[in-house]
Amino acid sequence: MKMETTEKKVNKVENDKKDPVIVIKNLKKSFGEKVVLTDFNLSIKQGTNVVILGKSGSGKSVLIKCIIGLLKPDSGSISVFGDDITQMSYDELNESRNRVGFLFQSNAIYDSMTIRENLEFPLRRHWVDITEEEIDRLVAEGLESVGLASTIDMMPSELSGGMLKRIALARTMILRPEIILYDEPTTGLDPITSREIEDLILSLQKKNNASSIIISHDMNCVKHVSDVVVLLLEGKCYTESTYAEMAVSTDENIKQFFL
């Protein structure tokens, strides 16, 4: 436990030297009268796992949907690898999405396709010169990395929730994204499967040296995977710290998440 904390402190020092891959400035997003994000600022460095903590409905999912371009912010800027995605055309945005992966809370597996076709789908469209042998190898590798090689020709309806989550993770990783956004990756899973998913997130992130933003209410997951924890409160970045520092905080707004 102490070793883990020391390791994270070392990581934090190393991370401080790296360039940010995502810079969010003065982000504002509202739906009608309801203001969800207001003057939100955040900077994420390469190879860092940032967990966004916040109450249900506080705008965490809205934030990552703005980062991937599914929602257009009202104002502010979101710079991904130095390019402001809020100013990009549709084609430019699609191009930049090659470098960003997104794991949906609902998994969003294409249910009319087999598992193989689900993994092949982004490969065939992004890497147009790829050979059939290469596709087969990458799909097999992807499934092996999540321990589900045997499901390759199965339909999504034949798999359990935990297995689908792993398949979704394999599909997210297949294009080797440099940034991965996770929307509640362990919600609804049993503790053992949750731990397996957390381990997978860490191992795949290490393998690709990716940066991650993870939205989670699961404090075990937060503790296990986070380098930095950001508390989203009333549409703003209330605080940004490590799990260990937050766990001993006397601030009431922070304490309520660690009870």
Binding site: L70, F104, Y110, R125
Partner: peptide
Amino acid sequence: VSEQIDAMEVSGIN
């Protein structure tokens, strides 16, 4: 409703 269209969008597929 099952976010499959959004999944295509975020994969950079129109």
